[in-house]
């Protein structure tokens, strides 16, 4: 078996005495999607931000493409960010209020020096088309777009540097349900075409089941259980897993059994 793309060992982080993340370890293969599920405060977003090196871990290793990311900083870390990108939950706050569609998408192309300069504007239009947006949006201000459109731009921004891994931190949780399906399909298409891996953070098991090959359920900073998504949902082994499965809304669950 080939080495995993991402391998996290004993990651730990405390905030002011409380252990937010406590010895979390998992592997993620190339082209695979691993979901991190759990309640708010379970540490799933902290894990995501530590993998992105947006939060400094207290302890542990983050092996990505054969190197420990925690050993790098400054320009060495910036160079590696090219291969590991992120989409945030809140599309209002994840773009600079002054950004346009073009400036948001040119940023990664410029900082990572992707393609010769004259081709970058063309690449932006290509990225917009790839995520299902009109290239005519090029000059629009991000904040004129709808939430769903903004999240497509965020996905395009993450794709621009042609990463091996995209961390999706509740990226579809705030999007309207009718648009969510389209975005899930887009992510699956991109994975099939480009072999991208996803670390998919969500609290909604229905969404996780639609996209993730494997799922880790976090509880109070630890991994309670980890395994193929289908078997976790069909037969959760832990109490928190059972509660999460039971609480997922089903179409007329109570109304059927008054």
């Amino acid at each position: 078996m080939t080495a995993p793309l991402l391998s996290v060992h004993d990651l730990a982080k405390s905030f002011g005495g409380t252990r937010a993340v406590d010895k979390v370890s998992f592997d993620l293969a190339a082209g695979e999607t691993l979901a991190l599920a759990g309640l708010s405060g379970s540490g799933k977003s902290t894990v995501a931000r530590m993998v992105m090196r947006l939060i400094e871990p207290d302890a542990g290793r983050i092996d990505f493409m054969g190197e420990d990311l925690t050993r790098h900083s400054g320009s060495a870390l910036r160079a590696r960010r090219r291969h590991i990108q992120m989409v945030f939950q809140d599309t209002n706050s994840s773009f600079n209020p002054r950004a346009t569609v073009a400036s948001a998408l040119l940023d990664p192309l410029n900082t990572f020096d992707i393609l010769p300069k004259p081709q970058r504007a063309h690449e932006v239009r290509h990225l917009l088309e790839r995520v299902g947006l009109s290239p005519g949006l090029f000059d629009r201000s991000i904040h004129e777009l709808s939430g769903g459109q903004r999240q497509r731009v965020a996905i395009a921004r993450a794709l621009a540097s042609r990463p091996a891994l995209i961390v999706l931190d509740e990226a579809l949780s705030a999007v309207d349900a009718s648009i969510r399906i389209d975005l899930l399909e887009l992510l699956l298409d991109l994975q099939r075409e480009q072999g991208i891996s996803y670390l998919f953070i969500a609290h909604d098991l229905g969404m996780i089941r639609a996209i993730a090959h494997r799922t880790a359920i976090l509880d109070a900073g630890r991994i309670a259980e980890i395994g193929p998504t289908q078997s976790i949902i069909a037969a959760p082994q832990t109490q928190i897993g059972q509660q999460l499965v039971a609480a997922a809304p089903r179409l007329f669950h109570v109304a059927d059994q008054p």
Partner: peptide, 14 residues
């Protein structure tokens, strides 16, 4: 602390 600052770090800004 806003996400767009985190996003700027993610896209490799100094």
């Amino acid at each position: 602390e806003k996400d767009y600052v985190a996003a700027a770090r993610v896209v490799g800004k100094r």
